Amino acid sequence: MRVDTRAGVDRPRPRRQHAHRAAVLGYPVDQSLYPVMHRAAYTAMGLEWTYTAVECEEPGLEQLIGSLDGSWAGLSLGMPLKRAALPLIDEVSDLAMDVGGVNTVVFRDGRSYGENTDVHGFLAALHEADVHALGSAVILGGGTAACSALAAVRELGVKEPAVVVREPSRAAEAHAAAGRLGMAVDVYSFGQLDSLLHGAGLVISTLPAGAADSYAAAIVHSRAAIFDVVYSAFPTRLAKAAGFAGSTVVDGLTLLTYQAARQVQLMTGREDVPVRAMREAAQAELARRAG
C-alpha cells in the first residue's frame, strides 16, 4: 500500500519525454558516491543516461522538484531532504512513511513516487554477510539511519531492539519510527552499553566515523556481528578490532552500494543491476580521494 500525500492537489502533467536523467540532491553533495555508482550501472547496462550531483537545501526542494520535466527518471535524496520531501511527493510507500524518510523519488506517468532503499541496503548487506535471523540487536545512535536499521532488524526477527544514545532526546526520531513500525524499543545511555552487549546477536553503529572507537573493546568482546555504517573512513577502529577478533563485520560501503542498486532498479525498471560494477566504482573513487 502507498500513502497518497497530495490527495486533491491538481498539478499540470509534463509532456511525455524519454526519461534519461537522474541526480542526487543534498547540501553539501560534492562528496556523494552516488554519481560514480549510478554512472557505472548505466554504462554496464548500456543506458545513455546522465546522473549529476545538485546542491539543494530544504527551502528550495519543492521548487526544484516542481521544475523537473519528463526527461527525469528519479532523484536520490540526502539529509535533511529525506524528511522534507515526504509532503512534496504524490505517493509514498508505507515503509518510507514508517521509517520517516524518503531517499528515492521515481517519476512515472506524470506522478512522483517516494521510496526508502536504506532498509533494503541494510538487509541486503546483512544477508551478504550471512546474517539472516536474530534474537537481539543493539543500535548505536538514534537518527535517520537508526530508523532504517530498526526496520531492518524487525525483518530479521528482533522484536525489542535496544537503542543507545548520548542523551534521551536524541532518540526521539527512532522512538517515533519504532512506534510506526509496531516495535517496542528500549532507549539506553552509553554508560549502560556493557550490560546490553551480553548475548547481543548484532551491533549496528550509525554513529559518525570514530564516534564508536572508544567502545570498540566492549563491543568486540560481546562476539556479536558488527555493522558499521561508515564508508569514507573505513575500516574504523571498531571494524578493525572486530575483524581481528574473528567477528562478522559489515561495512557502510556495502550498505551504500545496495541502496544505490535498488535506486537504479526502481528508476530504470530493470532487474539486471550490476552491483559488483557499482561497488568497484565506489571503491576506486574512495581510493582516488585518499591518494
Rank of each mutant, 00 (worst) to 15 (best):
A133I: 15
D130M: 13
D272Q: 15
A176T: 12
V230W: 01
C147I: 03
H221M: 11
L75N: 00
S93R: 07
E280K: 09
A162G: 07
R108H: 14
R11D: 09
R83K: 11
V249C: 04
T144G: 12
T236H: 04
A174N: 05
A200R: 02
D194H: 12
V187P: 04
S136T: 14
R83N: 07
Y42V: 08
T52P: 00
V203P: 00
A260M: 10
H120P: 00
I65F: 03
G142V: 04
R16W: 15
A233L: 13
S71K: 03
V24T: 03
A212S: 11
L207F: 12
Y258C: 05
E58A: 11
P14W: 15
L68A: 08
D10N: 12
A200K: 01
K82I: 06
A22V: 13
S222D: 09
Q265G: 09
V165N: 02
A224G: 06
C56P: 01
M79Y: 00
H127R: 08
E115T: 10
M267A: 12
P59A: 12
S189F: 08
H198P: 02
G114P: 04
I226D: 01
G135R: 14
L126K: 01
I89Y: 03
P168T: 12
V105H: 01
A287E: 14
A277N: 11
V36Y: 02
H18S: 11
L81Q: 00
A200V: 13
T144Y: 08
L150W: 05
A225V: 10
D4K: 04
A282S: 06
S247M: 09
P274V: 15
M79N: 01
E48Q: 15
G100E: 10
P168Q: 04
R289Q: 13
A125T: 13
E173P: 05
R270S: 09
D10W: 14
T5G: 09
L286A: 10
G114D: 06
G66S: 15
T236N: 06
R39Q: 13
D186Y: 04
G100S: 10
P168G: 08
H18I: 14
A217D: 13
P80Q: 06
M1L: 13
G141R: 00
A145Q: 04
L238N: 01
P28Q: 08
R270W: 08
V3N: 03
G199V: 07
S136F: 08
Y27H: 07
S93C: 12
E167H: 14
H18E: 14
L253V: 11
G26S: 06
V131P: 03
A22F: 01
H198Y: 07
L156M: 15
V24P: 00
A209F: 09
V131G: 02
L77N: 02
A284I: 14
I139W: 02
H20C: 13
A19N: 10
A241F: 07
V99G: 00
P208N: 15
G291K: 12
A137Q: 06
M37F: 03
L238K: 05
I219H: 05
F122D: 05
G26V: 00
A178V: 04
V249D: 02
L253N: 03
L47A: 10
A171S: 07
E167P: 01
Y231K: 06
V153Q: 02
E55F: 07
A149G: 12
R21Q: 14
L255Y: 08
A53G: 07
